[in-house]
């Protein structure tokens, strides 16, 4: 099973990076995004980047966007191009194809989070060396890793589910876009709908990551539950 999964991941990654015609184009595209979120934004933000919990939200959302841009094609696109039939007709078990595709997407999104977070750390330490050694707090580091992984898994498993059901890749992409919009705008609009005093209190909480611990744990559990449901479906 492990060999089959690594074969599927090899194939999926090849396809991701060859989207722009060749491997170099794919890598350049990936590095540009990494450069913006791992170097430019941390440089602009300064040491706060590793102290504030706000960037954690960014590292959580990014895999969602990265994965959702690819996931619609995973089954619906392959079905349209006839490649799905070719691969289903091989000795690969169906579950290896399904899990391989999900894992490839999760690793793609999660690798971006880990590399981006490390690059950001390097950037702020180099750019603001006068501040001494800057590190993420253990809670923040754990939050970045956990939420990066959980959101990548959520996007991959829910996206694969949508792609499996959709008749075309275009329709799958549209459904995925709507889902992402809801996930993105509902919390923002919800926050804006709160009374000003409550909003102020929430800002204060954000400045102290340790006070976020129960909320983060609850959120992580909720996303993990959503992941389990999506994978099971």
């Amino acid at each position: 099973m492990l060999t089959d999964l690594t074969t599927m991941i090899w194939k999926e990654w090849k396809e991701y990076f060859l989207q722009r015609g060749n491997m170099r184009g794919g890598l350049v595209g990936y590095l540009v995004v990494l450069g913006v979120f791992g170097a430019y934004l941390p440089y602009q933000t300064g040491p706060e980047w590793v102290r504030s919990p706000a960037p954690m939200a960014l590292w959580s959302w990014l895999p969602l966007f990265l994965v959702s841009s690819l996931v619609a094609d995973s089954f619906a696109g392959e079905r349209e191009r006839g490649t799905l039939e070719a691969i289903l007709a091989t000795r690969l078990p169906d579950r290896a194809i399904l899990l391989g595709k999900i894992l490839a997407l999760v690793l793609y999104g999660f690798a971006f989070v880990v590399l981006g977070a490390l690059l950001a750390l390097l950037t702020v330490n180099v750019a603001y060396s006068s501040e001494g050694l800057l590190l993420y707090s253990p809670l923040l580091a754990l939050g970045i890793v956990a939420f990066g992984l959980l959101f990548a898994l959520l996007a991959a498993s829910a996206g694969v589910l949508i792609s499996l059901q959709a008749p075309t890749a275009r329709q799958a992409a549209q459904t995925m876009s709507i889902a992402i919009m809801i996930l993105l705008f509902v919390p923002i609009l919800g926050f804006q709908a709160l009374p000003a005093t409550l909003q102020q209190q929430l800002y204060l909480v954000l400045e102290e990551p340790e006070r976020l611990r129960p909320a983060l744990l609850g959120l992580a559990l909720a996303i993990a539950l959503a992941d389990i449901l999506a994978v099971a479906a």
């Binding site: 090899w10 989207q19 006839g82 070719a86 091989t90 000795r91």
Partner: peptide, 20 residues
């Protein structure tokens, strides 16, 4: 309809199925 992965090269395409 052949079902070939158009982004892969001919060699990579066979490499994939050899691995499978």
């Amino acid at each position: 309809n052949m079902g070939l992965y158009q982004r892969l090269s001919g060699y990579e395409s066979l490499e994939l199925f050899g691995r499978i």
